[in-house]
Lab assay of single mutants.
Amino acid sequence: TGYYDVLGVKPDASDNELKKAYRKMALKFHPDKNPDGAEQFKQISQAYEVLSDEKKRQIYDQ
């Protein structure tokens, strides 16, 4: 599964769309709200870390 799929956004998503999707998913799977969501929360955080950084995103998109 790709990072875009993890966040539920298209590859041409804007920074604002990425942030909005990340916040929505992070709230849904945060371990405090969803004890079984810890692994998914890590994936969401990693996806956002890469896609929100312009240089990392360019490398990922290659």
Rank of each mutant, 00 (worst) to 15 (best):
Q58K: 14
F41S: 02
L7Y: 00
T1S: 12
E39F: 07
L51R: 00
A21L: 04
E17S: 02
S52Q: 07
D5C: 13
L18V: 09
A13E: 00
L18K: 00
H30G: 07
K19E: 13
K20P: 01
P31C: 09
M25E: 08
D15A: 15
K20M: 14
L27I: 14
Y48R: 01
K55Y: 13
Q62Y: 07
P11S: 09
Q40K: 14
S45V: 15
D12I: 04
K19D: 09
K42W: 10
D61R: 02
D61L: 06
Y22M: 06
K10P: 11
F41L: 05
V6E: 02
D12Q: 07
K20F: 09
D5Y: 09
S45N: 11
G37K: 06
Y60F: 03
K28I: 12
K19I: 08
Y3Q: 03
K42Q: 10
K55H: 13
K33W: 12
P35D: 04
L27S: 14
G37Y: 15
L7C: 04
D12V: 05
D5N: 09
K56H: 04
A38D: 08
S45R: 14
A26E: 11
N16I: 13
K42G: 05
A47K: 01
G37L: 13
A13C: 13
L7R: 00
M25P: 05
S14L: 03
G37T: 12
L51W: 00
E49Y: 11
D61P: 06
H30S: 11
K33M: 12
N34Q: 08
Y3D: 00
I59Y: 09
S52R: 10
L18D: 00
Y4L: 01
R23K: 13
A13S: 04
D61H: 05
Y60C: 06
Q43N: 09
A47M: 03
A26D: 05
G37H: 15
P31V: 06
L27C: 14
Q62D: 08
H30Y: 05
E17C: 09
L27N: 14
K28S: 07
I59M: 11
P31A: 07
S45I: 14
K19H: 09
V50E: 05
F41G: 00
Y22W: 07
Y22K: 03
G2L: 12
R57S: 07
V6D: 03
K56Q: 10
V9E: 00
D53A: 07
L51V: 04
T1H: 13
I59V: 12
D61Q: 05
K19A: 12
Q62F: 07
D5K: 10
K55P: 04
G8I: 01
L7D: 00
Y4V: 01
Y3M: 02
L51H: 00
E39Y: 09
V6W: 07
D12M: 04
E17K: 02
P35L: 06
R57M: 05
Q43S: 08
M25D: 08
G8M: 07
K55G: 08
